[in-house]
């Protein structure tokens, strides 16, 4: 993820401010837990809101709250945006 982290304008999901949204632009590949996260809606193009920071943190995606380890959230890069956590950007 270190290379991807350098993509301009993108921040790690665990680093956005609580109450703010981000559009998923990149996520780790080949890891079972990341795939589970994707199947729960945290995948490319989805809008995700950080409800509560910390470790684990709480996300809202597609109207559902997820409790996610910060270590896992760090593998997701988002483009900060406005709005709520329903649907696609």
């Amino acid at each position: 993820m270190s290379a991807a982290e350098q993509i301009e304008g993108l921040v790690r999901l665990d680093q956005i401010d609580p109450g703010h949204c981000g559009i998923v632009r990149a996520a780790g590949e080949g890891e079972v837990d990341v795939d589970l996260l994707k199947s729960m809606g945290v995948c490319l193009g989805r809008k995700v809101m950080l409800i509560q920071a910390g470790d684990p943190l709480i996300l809202k995606v597609m109207g559902t709250r997820l409790g996610v380890s910060a270590r896992l959230a760090a593998q997701v890069l988002v483009e900060p945006c406005a709005g709520d956590a329903f649907g696609q950007a």
Binding site: D33, L36, L37, M40, P56, I58, T64, R65, L66, G67, V68, S69, R71, L72
Partner: peptide, 10 residues
């Protein structure tokens, strides 16, 4: 250990 991923239902 493996990281947590859990749904927090309403």
């Amino acid at each position: 250990s493996r990281p947590l991923v859990i749904e927090l239902p309403s």
